[in-house]
């Protein structure tokens, strides 16, 4: 949780508070240990974190790179994306070490092992008596993002063994799924879980959308394999022609995890997830799922209010009340 008031003076109050939080960490020195910044135009606001960093904070020796990600999925975009990956690889090589195909394939294998383990972690939440909470799962996926993957894989393997011996969670009242804007706040999930809900899956950048499906290993051209796997992955509304795929992913995961209610959070000023309602709301309700849409900010200053909404939502699901 970050007080982003300094960042706001750069990015304005009309920006996404998640991005402001990121920039605040650059301003307050939290990220001083970093030696560079690679930006990708997921949406336009994180780009401005990069731009402001580059303009005000970049040190002379810092590596910086602007990566361009297509916003459609088709053959031309795949070619462009693969070329972008090659350009990035060359830039990294000029700055650090040579990246051979063998090294790339080895890295993909390590990451795929992370993906396999994370799927196992998620599988612990599928049954009627899950073994991990949503809050705990989010803490683990967050850790996976900031660690070397080989180290993380060892730790997660050990955790999975331990978790399988746990007492299952049976006292929950509603099986929930988190979708929406980036949520890296386990505390936010805890608000719902304290009220009797249990997050059993998600479509969240910091959850299943990070590392879930394996990346194809193309022995001849590993970059092409990465390009195909990453570009086709429905993550959020940034991709102009993957809205139906994103919707289907949400519905399939909801079915697979036996979800009863979907908590759809929209970060204030997040146009991508904000506008996705058009594609999602009716489809979620038509699938017989309850839906709670909440606007949120990176700082959960209204935990009490969210708690009331969460309690009502859980109760509504429990009693079979209308959405």
């Amino acid at each position: 949780m970050v007080n982003d008031s300094n960042a706001e003076s750069y990015l304005s109050p009309f920006s996404c508070s998640f991005c402001r939080g990121c920039f605040e960490h650059f301003l307050d020195g939290t990220y001083d240990f970093l030696n560079g910044f690679i930006a990708s135009d997921g949406c336009l606001q994180p780009q401005r974190v990069y731009d402001n960093w580059k303009n005000y904070l970049k040190r002379e020796d810092d590596f910086c790179y602007q990566f361009n990600t297509p916003r459609v999925y088709d053959e031309a975009a795949l070619g462009m994306y693969r070329q972008e990956l090659a350009d990035l690889k060359h830039a990294v090589e000029r700055w650090a070490n040579y990246v051979t195909n063998d090294k790339l394939i080895e890295a993909i294998k390590v990451y795929n092992e992370t993906r396999r383990l994370l799927r196992e972690l998620y599988a612990l939440r599928k049954g009627d008596a899950p073994l991990v909470t949503g809050e705990e799962c989010l803490r683990i996926t967050l850790a996976s993002m900031s660690m070397r993957k080989d180290t993380f894989n060892e730790l997660l393997s050990a955790f999975l063994e331990e978790a399988r011996q746990r007492e299952p969670i049976t006292d929950y009242r509603a099986r929930l799924m988190l979708i929406g804007s980036s949520c890296d706040s386990p505390e936010y999930l805890k608000i719902f879980e304290d009220k009797g809900g249990l997050f059993v899956t998600d479509v969240n950048c910091y959850g299943s959308r990070y590392l879930y499906d394996d990346v194809e290993i193309d022995e001849k051209d590993p970059l092409a394999g990465i390009a195909r796997s990453y570009l086709a992955r429905p993550v959020c509304g940034r991709m102009c022609n993957l809205h139906h795929e994103l919707r289907d992913t949400i519905l399939e995961m909801a079915k697979e995890y036996n979800v009863e209610g979907v908590v759809y959070t929209k970060m204030k000023n997040c146009d991508m997830w904000g506008g996705e309602s058009f594609f999602l709301d009716d489809a979620i309700r038509d699938a017989g799922l309850s839906l709670l849409i909440l606007e949120r900010e990176e700082i959960t200053a209204n935990a009490g209010q969210v708690g009331i909404r969460a309690e009502a939502f859980v109760e509504m699901i429990e009693t079979g009340g209308a959405d």
């Binding site: 949406c43 336009l44 606001q45 916003r71 459609v72 509304g237 940034r238 102009c240 022609n241 809205h243 146009d271 991508m272 904000g274 506008g275 996705e276 058009f278 594609f279």
Partner: peptide
């Protein structure tokens, strides 16, 4: 076009789909 901005990218695909 997929630009100029996130707002347009949240509404143009919806219009096209509609």
């Amino acid at each position: 076009c997929s630009l100029p901005c996130d707002s347009s990218r949240s509404t143009y695909p919806a219009m096209a789909d509609f």
